[in-house]
């Protein structure tokens, strides 16, 4: 059924200010939905979330079978003193732990691209001076665009969550109980703000960069700094080891340098907080912390993400106010 949004907005009692914001939001979402590249990236992301469930399930099944084979070996060779299967201590939710990495990698890039395309498109087409001749202020423009970006990211996150829930229902041995579903919901809510932060970064550099390539490459550099450099300085892990959801939070070196780095960088390392909270929520390691304890113990990480998103939002707002659409020219 087609919802008559336009008629609804025009006939409703909402103020003209809100009406123009909703119009921009609608335009933003429509533009993204029409974008074939957005579909392509979204499909890759959705496919990877399905793949993550399958990998988790297949690995769990094989690891259990390997343990059974080890039991048979211990019976055949009496010198093998086998310990209990550590996999049974891990919750069913751990099957989805790879999604932490996919949101961390593909999701963040998708966020940057959503933010980037939302503004660079108008800059390149030179449509902004025209839009601003209408009774639309810069504030309404940015609020409308950001609501549009937020709703799109919310749609992506909800769809991925749905894929996880459906796949958990169909994959044997890995059904989720109510507590686990709640943890998954909290994880996706947290991921929503993580992607929103990266979309603001993409949007910010789409406003301030002189060239289109720089507007994409600078956020990519920031993303590498947040995802790899800071966590490496804190844990001593190499970049690829940071992509393993089981070992990524292990501290390799106890030396003075890392202790100092941990003191100064841990509170501001968004990437470390994201993977840490993500692995606790999805029980990626055998240490199963209850949801009641995860949120208070990670209050700093959650507050950091919200504050960073808020700061980047205000920076976008400030830069858009300063932005001169008349003399603007974007290089490749």
């Amino acid at each position: 059924m087609k919802i008559p949004w336009r008629r609804y907005i025009l006939q409703s009692r909402i103020s003209p200010n809100m009406r123009s914001i909703f119009t921009i939001t609608r335009f933003e979402i429509k533009n993204l939905i029409r974008d074939r590249l957005f579909y392509l990236l979204f499909s890759v992301f959705a496919l990877m979330s399905l793949v993550s469930s399958l990998i988790g399930w297949s690995t769990y099944r094989t690891t259990t079978a390997v343990y059974d084979a080890a039991v048979r070996l211990s019976i055949a060779q009496s010198n093998v003193q086998l310990s209990g299967n550590p996999i049974t201590e891990i919750s069913s939710l751990a099957s989805f732990r790879n999604i932490i990495i996919y949101i961390f990698l593909i999701g963040s890039l998708l966020g940057i691209i959503i933010g980037n395309r939302s503004f660079i498109r108008e800059r390149k087409s030179g449509i902004l001076p025209l839009i601003l001749t209408r009774p639309v202020s810069e504030s309404k423009l940015i609020i409308g665009k950001i609501i549009g970006m937020g709703l799109t990211i919310f749609g992506i996150i909800s769809f991925t969550l749905l894929i996880n829930l459906i796949s958990s229902y169909f994959l044997p041995l890995r059904h989720l109980n109510t507590t686990e579903i709640t943890r998954l919901l909290v994880f996706y809510l947290y991921s929503f703000f993580y992607l929103l932060f990266f979309s603001f970064i993409g949007f910010l550099f789409a406003i301030i960069s002189k060239s289109e390539s720089l507007s994409l490459f600078i956020p990519v550099c920031i993303w590498v700094g947040i995802s790899f450099v800071m966590p490496e300085l804190i844990t001593g892990q190499t970049p690829t080891a940071l992509l393993n959801p089981i070992t990524m939070d292990q501290q390799l070196s106890p030396g003075g340098f890392f202790t100092t780095m941990r003191i100064f960088l841990s509170p501001i390392s968004l990437g470390s907080h994201y993977t840490n909270i993500g692995s606790q929520l999805l029980s990626a390691t055998s240490s199963n912390i209850s949801l009641k304890d995860i949120i208070p113990s990670n209050f700093n990480g959650i507050a950091l993400l919200l504050i960073s998103a808020l700061i980047s939002f205000f920076l976008c707002f400030y830069e858009l106010k300063k932005y001169n659409s008349v003399n603007d020219f974007v290089n490749e």
Binding site: T63, V66, N98, N244, I246
Partner: peptide
């Protein structure tokens, strides 16, 4: 660069537990 090598790495049986699966079960 990041996803495909990561899939192979996380499918490694020995990588299922932080200290190594085989080490954890004394094999």
């Amino acid at each position: 660069v990041l996803i495909v090598p990561q899939i192979g790495d996380t499918m490694d049986i020995d990588n299922q537990v932080p200290s190594g699966f085989f080490n954890a079960i004394n094999v």
